[in-house]
Design a binder for these strands. Structure first.
Lengths: 191, 191
DNA sequence: GTCTATATATAGATAGAC
DNA sequence: GTCTATCTATATATAGAC
């Protein structure tokens, strides 16, 4: 859990995630990271045996961040939790039209190692479970309509988010994602 | 318009699109295509000066297919048109969990040539315009609720489709996309 | 239209010195 | 922990023969 063991390693993961969200998994190399860090690419292999290893560490790093975030928003109302999610992804779109790291990895999913693929799916399920729980909670507190199916709505929400980031990038308009998610919220509320 | 001028060229484009939808733009090379075609990669440069050229031809080829498809469904009711769209993308998911070619290209958008980027956006807008028109038509014929905002719904629809394909791949479940789009249709209908 | 041969660049990875 | 040096594989692309 103590992943702050080394500054270079943490910074490499931060950079790798940024590249992943900007040019995809196949779009960056150890060379890019090394140049940005001001070290040689061979040095990076001290921290990550292989690119697959880097990918794995990257997802774990992102996952740990999500778990911390989930703790922070745990006391918010379901509606505010959902709003907090919108803000997280809006920040991606506003930051050079980044897409979701998991969405980016999905494109290359077939060429990833079995282990990394498994990790990606595991994290995806973790996020989905969180959404489903949040929606269920909102039904109970009457914040959301009693007619919604939490699992179905969670899938629509996740798809809209992934696709919304893609469309924001295509149109060079970060507002797109926000409008789409606001629209989905409105549709859910109209049930 | 006469793009059937050569069998090898057409087959190369078909293969390239398949690769794009499966492993992304950076995930395949002239070598892959040449091997599949049973020719040498140098021969492919006879048809496509560069990979960027191939990408451009690929989008144009896909775009031409969309225009033919739009003509074929032109006489259907708006609701059936939407259903026809669902079928097109469902076939992607059912075919080895392919994603949308435009969604795949969006991931690599930043490293594409200005020309190709422009082409991708142009085609995206063409698809969006078609959707908006179809939704407007359905409002007029009372098939869709008079409360929907065609442009907002078109964006939600496109995002759900892009994201739905990604989620289908992640879960190895082509049913996901269908459920998501059915859910969106239901939400729209509930307005 | 397809081939061989080749050029050039880059990617992922390792060995071993400091 | 970072370096130099090196290996092997692959990618894009071109020249020129058949």
């Amino acid at each position: 859990m103590n992943d702050l063991e080394n500054k270079t390693k943490t910074e490499a993961l931060r950079l790798a995630r940024s590249y992943l969200q900007t040019v995809g998994y196949n779009g960056f190399s150890f060379q890019h990271l090394a140049d940005d860090l001001g070290i040689k690419k061979a040095s990076l292999h001290y921290y990550f045996k292989s690119k697959d290893d880097l990918g794995l560490a990257l997802v774990e790093y992102y996952q740990a961040g999500f778990e911390r975030w989930a703790m922070q928003v745990a006391e918010l109302t379901p509606k505010k939790k959902l709003q907090a999610v919108v803000e997280v992804f809006s920040r991606f779109a506003e930051d050079d039209f980044k897409v979701c790291p998991m969405g980016a990895l999905s494109i290359d999913l077939k060429v990833l190692s079995k282990k990394l693929k498994h990790k990606v799916l595991e994290f995806h399920n973790m996020q989905r479970d969180w959404l489903v729980e949040t929606l269920k909670q909102g039904k109970k507190t009457k914040e959301f309509s009693s007619h919604i199916d939490p699992e179905a709505v969670a899938d629509i929400w996740m798809a809209s988010t992934q696709g919304g980031l893609i469309i924001s990038r295509l149109r060079s308009d970060s507002q797109c994602l926000k409008s789409i998610l606001k629209g989905v919220q409105k549709l859910i509320g109209a049930l």
